[in-house]
Design a protein around this nucleic acid. Structure first.
Length: 756
DNA sequence: AAGAGATTTATTTTT
DNA sequence: TAAATCTCTT
């Protein structure tokens, strides 16, 4: 016992030790980046179990991603030297599902949601929103379903029901949202489906309806821990508060400076007001950074210091100074990607580093394209976190739609998908679907029943829908196939069910074996089969629901740890939160990208989005342990158009002592938008319009090229200069490109970059 | 109802 | 630029 105690507490600093051993009552830990908060969380849980005799099943720990939960559980089990069975650890959303699954009777009775409910993902939600817009007699083309959805989601995150929303409308637009919201919710329920926000809101409704069930959980969870508390929203706050009300042993960890989910209704006040909610709370600060070099820490500190909405504190470290932060301007996004690939190659060669030591971070997923292309040709292994998830690929979603419909016959969104995309639905158009839907509505049954009623041997509740011609044939075919699949669904393993699905729906044959692209998509479908096989170990009746739930709740980062070894990571700044890498590149640090244009537009009436952008940059900087590169391009192609860009204002705050410019031109702080801002503030110039946006020709270095130099051209790629002819102040270059052969180019016009 | 061809839209971030 | 959506023809 004593041995273990020293193990659990050794190597912790005073503040960390205090956080681990302060057992009872509300505790707020404000933890800067790299200050060991994961260590504190894991050691604290192990300490509770080992030293305080707390049962693992009396502890609830909420993390931001499933990956974090998995890793923490592993670390705890390693500390304990045994399994931590019973410990409830996961994201808010997975915990929400768990609550709903554990109370099927109450959930059905009080909330009207049957146990076979599905979790609708983003695309499904858009579809439901569209249908809702149509149903209230409006036009989805004018209303932007996505915008409706974000308003609805915001309302749900604030626990505002459709009825409450309707009562507090102020503008015409609000009224429209209210109507769509109501219909959206009705459509979801009719499909026996829930969305992400419901996973948090429904447990609260359940507790309202059945206080005894709340009391049970309150009693059970003597200790509750919440990570990334700065990113919790209202629903999450209410849920945690309710659960912690009985024992009040609530331990929250967060960093207001890393709050980057304001757009998801994350409310920084949850952490700032913690001590108001719990006047007896103990507050512990973890400030010393163990992760990064001194220069990286100082850079981060100076950048975040510019924010006004924050608690003043200083980030510090006792680590070595380390290398300078490298800032590099590139001609365009291709050069930027090329530069990054080149640097990585160089560092791998000379610096004893491997691919997985590197991460490239960017603000928007669109930026990953060019980077990915550069890595693809470079043959450096890489992986992309974010972008299109495996489960979001069209062909995968198609097959999943069938499985979902088999699990939940009310799932009209999946039914629609099947009709649109499967050979099975051929000959069956929108008008015919209207007929069947109307029939189903009339009889109060799911739309699928309309099809089943046409299958041979069916005993429908009413005369089947009136169809004719190709629509009738198609509907009969679909009904017959589904009737049979439904029978088999309970008996077959998932893999065999998969086989039956792709065979009988004609999906398998729909791939053209002569087209490479289609074969790739077919390969994805088969990968789904391999995925399904893993679930055949479960009880047959659990396999499908467990699988579908897992599919709905995996985040991009969750899927990350599979075969990440040796690969460079390409990741959005948002997804990078909580991760660390020896070498980090932050790409596209330009006005309009980081900060994102919308934050710039909003700045004059609302400074908060801009501050969030700055925090995002801060999150990126603090991911780096040893080396940090910041790159920006002088111009980039957006929507297929060239646009020149201005270095981000955030660059102006990096201290001279920490930064060095790479390349021929020094990094010119005065051209970054930060300095322009100053001028704007004193009223010398209007914003942006007169900003000295440099034209490419004007700022391109007038380097004199020489034969044998290696260069990079945005279109032609890598090449070697074979001949140089001087023409006045300019040069005409003969270049042999690796992939495009010999070209003659004018030095001042060709957007060339020297590569080492 | 289906496919070809024209046109228009999109890029903020995600559980 | 590429993907999604619309329009027109059969």
């Amino acid at each position: 016992m004593a041995r273990q105690l020293t193990d659990l507490l050794s190597g912790l600093n005073d503040a960390q030790r205090e956080a681990v051993t302060a057992v009872d009552g509300p505790i707020l830990v404000v933890a800067g980046p790299g200050s060991g908060k994961t260590r504190v969380l894991t050691h604290r849980i192990a300490y509770l179990i080992e030293e305080r005799g707390v049962g693992p099943d009396e502890i609830l720990a909420v993390t931001f991603t499933n990956k974090a939960a998995r890793e923490m559980r592993d670390r705890i089990e390693r500390l304990l030297g045994r399994s931590a069975e019973g410990l409830v650890m996961g994201t808010f959303h997975s915990f929400g599902v768990r609550l709903l699954r554990q109370n099927p009777g109450l959930v059905a009775d009080r909330l009207g949601i049957l146990p076979n409910f599905l979790i609708y993902d983003d695309a499904d939600q858009v579809e439901v929103a569209k249908r809702a817009i149509v149903a209230v007699g409006l036009d989805p083309k004018q209303l932007a379903p996505r915008r409706m959805l974000s308003r609805i989601s915001a309302a749900k995150s604030l626990l505002v029901s459709p009825e409450e929303f309707a009562q507090q409308t102020e503008t015409y637009d609000d009224e429209v949202v209210a109507r769509v919201y109501r219909e959206y919710q009705r459509t979801l329920r009719k499909a026996n489906a829930v969305d992400f926000d419901d996973l948090l809101a429904l447990p609260i409704q359940l507790f309202d309806e059945a206080p005894a069930s709340l009391a049970r959980y309150q009693e059970r969870f003597r200790y509750i821990l919440v990570d990334e508390y700065q990113d919790t929203n209202r629903v999450q706050y209410v849920l945690v508060s309710a659960l912690a009300a009985r024992h009040r042993n609530l331990f929250v960890v967060g960093d207001p400076d890393q709050s980057i989910y304001g757009w998801r209704q994350a409310d920084i006040r949850n952490i700032l007001d913690f001590e108001k909610d719990y006047p007896d709370a103990k507050r512990i600060h973890l400030e010393l950074n163990y992760r990064s070099t001194r220069r990286i820490v100082d850079t981060a500190d100076r950048v975040i210091r510019e924010n006004t909405q924050r608690i003043d504190r200083r980030l510090r470290t006792e680590n070595d100074d380390g290398e300078m932060v490298a800032v590099r301007e590139l001609a365009d996004q291709n050069h930027e990607a090329q530069f990054i690939v080149g640097e990585i190659r160089r560092l791998v060669r000379t610096g004893n580093l491997s691919g997985d030591d590197f991460a490239i971070m960017y603000r928007t997923t669109a930026q990953s394209r060019v980077l990915e292309e550069a890595f693809r040709v470079s043959d450096i292994p890489y992986r992309i976190v974010g972008g299109v998830r495996f489960y979001d690929r069209k062909e995968v979603k198609d097959v999943l739609a069938v499985l979902r419909l088999l699990h939940n016959p009310a799932d009209d969104v999946s039914l629609g998908r099947i009709i649109d995309n499967f050979p099975l639905g051929r000959g069956f158009g929108p008008r015919a679907l209207d007929t069947v839907s109307a029939w189903a509505a009339q009889n109060g049954v799911p739309t699928l029943e309309g099809f089943l009623s046409l299958a041979p041997g069916a005993r429908p509740p009413a005369p089947p829908p009136q169809l004719s011609g190709s629509a009738k044939t198609a509907a009969q075919r679909l009904g017959t196939v589904f009737a049979r699949l439904q029978e088999e669904a309970g008996q077959l393993t998932l893999a065999s069910l998969f086989d039956a699905v792709v065979e009988r729906t004609g999906y398998k044959e729909s791939f053209d074996h002569d087209k490479e692209e289609e074969m790739q998509r077919y390969a994805n479908v088969m990968e789904l089969r391999a995925d399904l096989e893993k679930y055949d170990l479960l009880e047959p009746e659990d396999a499908l629901p467990t699988y579908l739930e897992q599919v709905a709740l995996v985040a991009d980062v969750d899927a990350m740890d599979d075969d990440g070894r040796g690969r460079v990571t390409l990741i959005t700044l948002h997804s990078a939160k909580g991760l660390e890498f020896p070498v980090v590149f932050i790409a596209g640090v330009e006005e309009g990208l980081l900060p994102i244009s919308r934050a710039i537009e909003a700045e004059f009436h609302d400074p908060l989005p801009m501050e969030e952008e700055r925090r995002l940059f801060y999150v990126g900087i603090t991911r780096a342990k040893k080396l940090l590169y910041i790159t920006y391009a002088g111009s980039r192609v957006t929507y297929g158009r060239f646009q020149s860009s201005v270095p981000s204002r955030f660059l102006a705050n990096i201290p001279d002592e920490c930064v060095r410019s790479l390349g021929r031109r020094p990094f010119d702080r005065d051209r970054s938008a930060g300095r322009l801002q100053d001028r704007v503030r004193v009223g010398l110039e209007p914003a942006r319009s007169t900003a000295p946006v440099p034209t490419p020709a004007a700022w391109r270095p007038t380097a004199s090229y020489q034969p044998a130099q290696r260069v990079f051209h945005p279109k032609f790629g890598e090449g070697v200069i074979t001949d140089v002819t001087n023409r006045g102040g300019d040069q005409e270059l003969a270049i042999t490109f690796a992939r495009h052969g010999a070209k003659r180019l004018i030095a001042s016009l060709a957007q060339l970059d020297l590569i080492s």
